[in-house]
Design a binder for these strands. Sequence first.
RNA 1: GGAGUCGUAGUUCAGUUGGUUAGAACGCCGGCCUGUCACGUCGGAGGUCGCGGGUUCGAAUCCCGUCGGCUCCGCCA
Length: 603
Amino acid sequence: MLDNFGELKRTHSCGALRGEHVGQSVTLMGWVARRRDFGPLTFFDLRDRDGITQGVFNEETAPAAHARAKEVRGEYVIAVTGEVVERDAAQRNPKIATGDVEVQAREILILNDARTPPFQFEVTSSDGLASEDLRLKYRYLDLRRPQLQANLRLRHRAVAEIRRFMDEQTFTEIETPILIKSTPEGARDYVVPSRLHHGKFYALPQSPQLFKQLCMIAGLDKYYQIARCFRDEDLRADRQPEFTQLDLEMSFATPEQVYALLEGLLARVFKLIGVELPLPFPRLTYAEAMRRYGSDKPDLRFEMELQDLASAVEGTDFAPFAAALASGGEVKGITVRGGGAALSRKALDELQEHAKRYGAGALAWIKLGDEATSSLLKALGEDAVKRVAQAAGAENGDAVLIVAGKSKTVAASLGALRNEVARREKLIPANTYAPLWVTEFPMFEFNDEDGRYYPMHHPFTSPLDEDLPLFERAVEGGETELLKGMRAKAYDAVMNGSEIGGGSIRIHRRDVQRLVFKALGMTEEKARERFGFFLDALEYGTPPHGGIAFGIERLVMLLAGTENIRDVMAFPKTASAADLMIDAPGAIDPQQLDELHIGIAKQ
RNA sequence: GGAGUCGUAGUUCAGUUGGUUAGAACGCCGGCCUGUCACGUCGGAGGUCGCGGGUUCGAAUCCCGUCGGCUCCGCCA
């Protein structure tokens, strides 16, 4: 039998009671986390979002309550009324905040019973967390874990701080539509069929990009939004099909103003976890980041920069190196300091496998132990190997890992290897935050397969002013090769090897916009068809403007110190974009399909 | 689209070279216990070895397929 809740008032949370409350009569409500039954004496750990308080039921002093308490099982929801008493010195529990006191129960109400949970969400050292699919199916139970609750509260505090800050900076929070129109640029769209318009579809926004620019054209001057975004692409540990961005845009803004604003904002947010970010953030151009770190989102918590070994191997007849250099590629390496020379054959094989995943043909290595050993010894000879090691800046005890090939492949594989080696060799200091700006991204990416140029950021990104003449020559003069060198006023905010934000100064001039579309091989008609409303808008007095979008989840992941985006979302999806709790996506009624004029094609 | 890895009791896992009745811990149920806090202790229940097929006298174990979780490449600001 359950008890009626009635008018009973909770007086304190389960994390509130301290020595100062001793003697008070209190009523706590919560879940039974654990029960320790000694017959005439029974202890309960009562849990709510604030913490845990021990309740004591004594047969001698409160026989009715004690008898009732016998019926209680794990995760029952109960209300306990009693007196706060101080624990004897030997009975205090330093592991919980309320451990100096306990509640001597007079009365208990069983507000609800509970089935035995399908898994234990209190993790002890002897057994691990239940499998993720089970926890996702019962997400509302998994969320009872204090760690997940703490993450969600941290996320709330971060978002609240962001709103405060943006308000102080006189930004206006503006909501933009969720049901919009598909644009073929960028990611795959999630699509929603229209009932009123046969055969037509809305798309969910990949980001509020065009709307925020329209806000600038409207003269709203400073816009921001904590915006949900949708992208129908494959998932990763830090990627979900729907996610949240701090999206912002400023009129008359330069990149410097965007950097300053965001640095101020991030400094405020990181203060929430007691971290003082070093201001201003260091900057690297895209070209420099790729050259020195092999990545456009380098992890600056450790060194291990890429070393150019081309001159050290110049003139070699070792085919992989010679071929790479002859065809305009590179030979580069990273130097593993300290323990590098102790890397086992197995470890080197694993690292080679890792590098191959990113397109490297092979991984060459040099180990400077008591004597130099190297996979290149036969091919290059001892002198050349030493020369290479020296060029890499390697000293006794170090190892050099070398990749040769196309610049892109060398960067990708060595960049990935740099992270992997740092992780394995424990070169990454804990509780360290290394933010930076990566600037001057290329305007375009050349696709080898179809021979076309694609925007690296999006087609509304402004070129660098000094590259404009180049741009005109490339597009109007037909020197399309020049497009590869064009730089944009585009920038990413990077922290600890994670891209947490990206933005740009936008094109505000119709003539420049026309050049971009032309460079992308888009006819004026095609552009009109896709973005006509926007091109019209550009002609009514568009201020120079720019902004940035920030991944809230990635930011909170850094704040919470977790590697997985599911740890900072209340109801995440699996790697196959399914929700195991509500069993989404699901089929819909034939009737609903009819209404939408949709038929499902047979496989 | 591709690769790796995992799937055995409610949960986390072990399970030898293919061989008798598939084990442990935690949880659950019952008994005992007045100071525990991962209580202790005694007893008990609990299994479609993800699913389907094959090889074999015999399959949790070997093979093929398939489904699902996770991670990565491709993809994605």
